[in-house]
Design a protein around this nucleic acid. Structure first.
Lengths: 246, 246
DNA sequence: CGAAATTTTGAGAGCTCTCAACTGGGGTGG
DNA sequence: CCACCCCAGTTGAGAGCTCTCAAAATTTCG
């Protein structure tokens, strides 16, 4: 099931370099010097996986840690009754699957084809011992994730349907900015259902909200899985809960 | 405003011991040896604050880190339109206000009178350098918080009103267990409004749910701010989204 | 080109919110 | 000491937002 266990890693795809991960993006290795990068590179592997691959499932033993070099991923939890809650989307540069728990607390699936750097958890732990800066970096990333998740809790708990979708669009802009590239047309590889499961809505409600934004001239979807924000101010006001007095 | 800046700390309240924090509860100092405890004790202070004190506010410079020794606290964020989202409750043993960001990302208020251990952030950072185990401990705590917040996201995003209240009651049991003490009658110092702001509901809906549980014989509220779960199985089933086939 | 998946749109139902009134307890001031 | 007020909680009725169910339109992909 797990593509990493499938031993289908052709030598060509097993690039042994990870020192480019942190070039423009804020990856795990960012604070490391050249020597440390060499060491971590020797122990990590890069692989390219097709869209919709499963990186790991909730409950799997948390034996590996991943960094998304290129592409998009979705982290989600499943309820007993089958409903899904997306706990976050991940973008190039993000670390996925680091936990001090024994098993992963959520599913991680790719939304697009992606390049991923993977590292054995016990090798990472050894590196943490050797490079204290790395542990600090991990802590920083965890605090950021925690803050983002709390922000998402505010969105889901206290905003109207349209305000949630507006906040989601703004989070795409923030992620784009975090990656350094600031394009007009954003990539939005998630389906309406993914967005709905992230925002605590149904896919129909998400669709209606996006249609409403389009009709108001706030957004444009020039291509499938692409969106351009034409009126960021209006979208921000809506996300903040201010009536559109504009 | 901030009680810690008010310099009203009488010498009596400035106990310089923190080495009892981690006795039965899982505080920050848990992994430290006696020597380290002595050092951290010298640099931290214990204070007792009355109920409803503000520990810090969202946006305040994050200059101190707190450990709740005894009592209950509420962490919340405020939306521009005045609505509040409680991002978590904190119990004895929990660390509050550690962030790598420059300022606190939420308000922290006491629900009850509480004993708190406080430490300058820069002193903590110095300790982190000296005791790597401490940094590891902080990372563990952050991962735990993150996992709990994601679980809360599932609750708020995907469960019905009664299921959310049921999940909240179960989280009280889990917190009680985490503290080591396992009593029948749980302390529940939060108001209906606090619970509502935690669950993304209104206080009326929370009240109606609790009344329904009481009428079904699932819970009992022998005193103000106390609750006893009489039918944990039924409450669990409801929280899981299973219809009460029981 | 055809099948499957995704998205859009519609109509009605239902869950939760909003607004409101009432109750009970605790503190305060006359 | 007691009346009063304020706050927390409860309960009720109606409104509204979002969900559910359904079908059509559109896009993707084999």
């Amino acid at each position: 099931m797990n593509p990493f266990d499938a031993a289908q890693l052709a030598p060509e795809t097993r690039v042994t370099i990870c020192d480019r991960c942190g070039s423009r993006i804020a990856g795990l290795c960012q604070p490391l010097d050249a020597a440390a990068l060499d060491e971590i590179s020797a122990e990590s592997q890069q692989v390219v996986l097709p869209a919709h691959s499963t990186i790991f499932r909730e409950g799997d033993p948390a034996g590996k840690v991943f960094t998304l070099i290129e592409g998009f991923a979705k982290l989600s939890r499943l309820l007993p009754d089958g409903k899904q809650q997306v706990v976050g989307f991940r973008f190039a540069g993000d670390v996925i699957g680091y936990t001090t728990l024994g098993s992963y607390p959520f599913d991680a699936e790719l939304l697009t084809e992606a390049r991923i750097c993977r590292l054995e958890r016990r090798q990472l732990d050894a590196l943490l011992q050797r490079y204290p800066k790395l542990e600090r970096r991990l802590l920083d990333l965890c605090v950021q994730e925690l803050t983002a998740t709390q922000e998402q809790l505010v969105t889901v708990g206290r905003r109207s349907a349209e305000a949630r979708v507006a906040a989601f669009l703004l989070s795409l802009v923030a992620a784009e900015r975090r990656r350094g590239t600031e394009r007009q047309v954003l990539e939005m590889p998630m389906t309406r259902a993914d967005i709905a499961d992230f925002l605590g809505l149904t896919l129909e409600t998400v669709s209606r909200s996006l249609t409403a934004f389009r009709k108001r001239g706030w957004i444009r979807e020039p291509l499938h899985h692409r969106v351009e924000l034409l009126d960021v101010a209006a979208i921000s006001d809506l996300a903040e809960g201010l009536a559109s007095e504009r």
